[in-house]
Design a protein around this nucleic acid. Structure first.
Length: 279
DNA sequence: AGTGAGGCCTGAAAGC
DNA sequence: TGCTTTCAGGCCTCAC
């Protein structure tokens, strides 16, 4: 499911394939995504040129030369197919088809947790979507003191705090587990209990994990662009996620009833961690 | 204000 | 074998 690294990968792929292209026409096949696609969406984005493509949190934004932009979010199951042909066969759950001078873009999302919308570029920061977005993990302003301050009055555990997009944006359920493992911090710790030293380690771990994932995603860019529409999401070698009962890569503990990677449910979401290594 | 539960949604996998 | 149930999770809304 697309978290920051996948969205970054998709953004880079789109930059290479359709930045500078002209949008000739748009076909909306199903407006009912997480948020209804506006009635004037097609009208506002057709016959424009894509001037810039960038990422905000887990959203991809396409700036257009008429002052509007297209905003895409992938939810749980959203994907984009890009085909350098003049036509493509529709697939089930292809909700938006964008025909450009450089090829065709299809937004496909079986679960429809994603979103495609548009707004005026100058008003993008006013959208409710972006009004409560925290710092990007790679933002230089993300520091141990920033986190210490944000966590000061929070009562939740650190795993849940990492999923709070108003503090750090872009981390999803998988990378929350992986980053905590990398930092050797237990997901059960209260976020306010973390020392400055631990927060610094956590920030570094988040960056390490995300960079690794982005690098792995980058390696599949070629696949991603294949005309057959095969997806290019990287396959990260997770250390703990989905590895319940197994030994973690760096742990000396033996797989017994007490040890090995444990799966717990926090706030209705699964968390994986090594109780031996993460304190 | 902050927090937690519930809902949205489909398809894969598990259960019967 | 084939049907039914459960589970996956990002993000929003609502209730407390």
């Amino acid at each position: 499911m697309p978290e920051l690294p996948e969205v970054e990968t998709i953004k880079e792929a789109l930059k290479m394939s359709i930045e500078g292209a002209t949008i000739r026409s748009v076909l909306v096949r199903n407006r009912h995504l997480r948020k209804l696609i506006p009635e004037d969406f097609e009208q506002n984005v057709q016959q424009t040129r894509i001037t810039r493509i960038y990422r905000i949190s887990k959203y991809v934004v396409l700036d257009l030369d008429n002052g509007h932009n297209i905003i895409i979010h992938f939810g749980m199951s959203g994907k984009i197919r890009f085909i350098k042909q003049s036509s493509l066969p529709f697939e089930k759950h292809d909700h938006v088809i964008i025909d450009t001078s450089k090829g065709i873009l299809a937004y496909n999302d079986p679960r429809r947790f994603g979103l495609v919308t548009e707004t005026l570029s100058e008003k993008i920061k006013d959208l409710p979507l972006f009004s409560k977005i925290g710092l990007d993990p790679f933002d230089r302003k993300l520091s141990k003191n920033y986190l210490k301050n944000k966590f000061r009055n929070k009562s939740c555990v650190i795993k849940i705090a990492l999923l709070d997009q108003s503090i750090i944006c872009g981390i999803g359920n998988i990378y929350a587990s992986e980053a905590l493992y990398e930092a050797q911090i237990s997901p059960l710790r209260s976020c306010s209990s973390l020392s400055l030293q631990e927060l610094e380690k956590l920030i570094n771990s988040i960056k390490i994990i995300l960079k690794k994932a982005i690098a792995a995603g980058g390696s599949t860019l070629h696949d991603y662009k294949r005309p057959d529409g095969s997806t290019g999401y990287f396959q990260l070698q997770h250390a703990v996620y989905g590895k319940e009962g197994k030994c973690c890569p760096h742990c000396i503990c033996k797989k017994t009833n007490q040890h090995g990677i444990r799966k717990i449910i926090q706030d209705g979401r699964s968390t994986f961690y090594c109780p031996c290594l993460q304190k």
